[in-house]
Design a protein around this nucleic acid. Structure first.
Length: 210
DNA sequence: TGAAAGATTCGCT
DNA sequence: GCGAATCTTTCAG
């Protein structure tokens, strides 16, 4: 298969979102990113997907990785908003986060799911499935499809153009919210955002009707 | 130095 | 729908 350079028909409608234009509050950023386009460039491929599900982990949140202060592992969460934080859960699943507060303050947004737009063949090969709905549904699956690894951890958003966000100015999605998935502390906070009715959203159907 | 928990996923029943 | 797999980080002793 030929490498997929930037697809003209796709990028023509992509308007890059500069880091200065990202909201700096955790909740605001989580909501802002819904419906935006995640872009992953690694030289050989150009992958895009529309973000359909995020979760906010604001300062003071007991469920967040930054709850017990800054460590070597979670340092990226304390960088100025717009830095990439990557970690591995349960030994297998990589998770993509974006720091969301001022420098020195811990906060992050987890990107949980996306609707594949371009580079779909590459994602299919990486995920080992042809079902487009399963390519980037769930944080670990999304990371695998977009080849998110520790190499990206700590990167400033947009650095080297490896990872950035764009606005394709499509119709704004209907955003719904619910409690977050898979956590035990602060489990009653409605800090998960998703596109209502999207088949690319993860999580139990019960939550997605809320 | 050891043990336990964790922002999940996949396969099997 | 349920339970195992899997491994890093963190906390306790």
């Amino acid at each position: 298969m030929r490498a997929t350079p930037r697809d003209a028909a796709t990028s023509e409608h992509l308007h890059p979102i500069h880091r200065a234009d990202l909201p700096s509050g955790t909740i605001a950023l989580a909501r802002f990113l819904i419906g935006k386009v995640l872009v992953r460039e690694d030289g050989a491929s150009f992958l895009t997907g529309r973000i359909v599900e995020t979760e906010a982990y604001p300062p003071g949140d007991d469920a967040a990785h930054h709850r017990s202060g800054r460590t070597a592992r979670n340092a990226s969460l304390f960088l100025a908003h717009g830095h990439v934080y990557v970690y591995r859960a349960y030994g297998t699943a990589m998770m993509l986060n974006v720091s969301s507060e001022a420098d020195g303050v811990g906060g992050g947004v987890l990107i949980r799911a996306a609707e594949p737009l371009s580079g779909i063949d590459v994602m299919r090969a990486r995920r080992g499935t042809d079902d487009i709905r399963r390519l980037a549904r769930g944080p670990g699956c999304l990371a695998q499809a977009f080849d998110i690894g520790f190499a990206l951890d700590g990167d400033a958003y947009g650095a080297g153009n490896a990872l950035w966000f764009a606005d394709d100015r499509s119709k704004p999605p209907r955003i719904a919210r619910s409690v977050r998935i898979g956590i035990t502390r602060n489990a009653d906070k409605p800090w998960r955002f998703f596109v209502r009715g999207s088949p690319f959203v993860s999580g139990p159907a019960k939550l997605n009707r809320a």
